[in-house]
Amino acid sequence: MIDPDLVEMAEDELKRAVTLSWRELRKVTPWGDSYEGFSPTGRAVMVERSYLWADAEGGDILCEIVVYGGDSRYDQGARISAVIEKKGNA
C-alpha cells in the first residue's frame, strides 16, 4: 500500500503541474525536474515532475509526478499522472 501522505502530496503537485497549457509546454517537452520538499505531515521527500509526449511528438503531453521518501524508497513512492490534451490548445 502506498503511503497516503505521499499520495496527498503527489495529487497536490499534479494539480499545479497541469495548470500549464499545452501551448506553454510544447516548447519544453520532454522536460522534467526534481526537488526536495516536505510532505503534508512534515516528512522530507523527493518530488519528480516530468512532461513527456503521450504518444507522438507534437501530440498530447503526459504529466507524471512521483513523490518518494529518498532514493532507496523510490519504488514505494506515490505515482500519479494526467494528460494535457493538444485539442483546442494548439
Rank of each mutant, 00 (worst) to 15 (best):
M1G: 05
I2R: 11
I2K: 08
P4L: 00
D5L: 00
D5C: 07
L6T: 09
V7P: 02
E8T: 14
E8F: 05
M9A: 05
A10T: 02
A10I: 03
E11S: 11
E11H: 10
D12E: 14
E13L: 13
E13I: 13
L14Y: 11
K15T: 08
K15Q: 12
K15C: 00
K15H: 09
R16C: 08
R16I: 11
R16F: 04
A17H: 10
A17L: 01
L20W: 11
R23N: 15
E24P: 15
E24C: 14
L25E: 12
L25Q: 01
R26W: 03
K27W: 10
K27E: 15
K27Q: 12
K27M: 08
V28A: 12
W31Y: 12
G32A: 00
D33K: 06
S34Y: 13
S34H: 12
S34D: 12
F38I: 06
F38G: 03
F38W: 11
S39L: 02
S39W: 03
P40R: 05
P40M: 03
P40K: 05
T41K: 09
T41G: 00
T41C: 03
T41H: 03
G42D: 06
R43A: 15
A44K: 14
A44P: 06
V45H: 02
V45T: 02
M46Y: 11
V47S: 08
V47I: 15
V47E: 09
V47C: 08
E48P: 01
R49C: 01
R49K: 08
S50P: 10
S50T: 05
Y51L: 07
Y51N: 09
L52Q: 14
W53G: 08
A54P: 00
D55I: 01
E57Y: 04
G58S: 10
G58A: 06
G59D: 13
D60Y: 02
D60L: 07
D60A: 07
I61Q: 06
C63S: 02
C63E: 02
E64R: 07
E64D: 00
E64P: 00
I65H: 04
I65F: 02
V67P: 08
V67T: 12
V67I: 10
Y68N: 07
G69I: 07
G69W: 04
G70S: 09
D71P: 11
D71K: 15
D71G: 10
D71V: 11
S72K: 11
S72L: 12
S72R: 13
R73G: 02
Y74C: 01
D75A: 15
D75E: 15
D75M: 09
G77F: 06
G77R: 04
I80V: 08
S81L: 04
E85I: 01
E85P: 10
E85S: 11
K86T: 13
K87L: 15
K87E: 15
K87C: 10
G88F: 09
G88Y: 07
G88E: 07
N89F: 06
N89G: 15
A90I: 00
A90V: 01
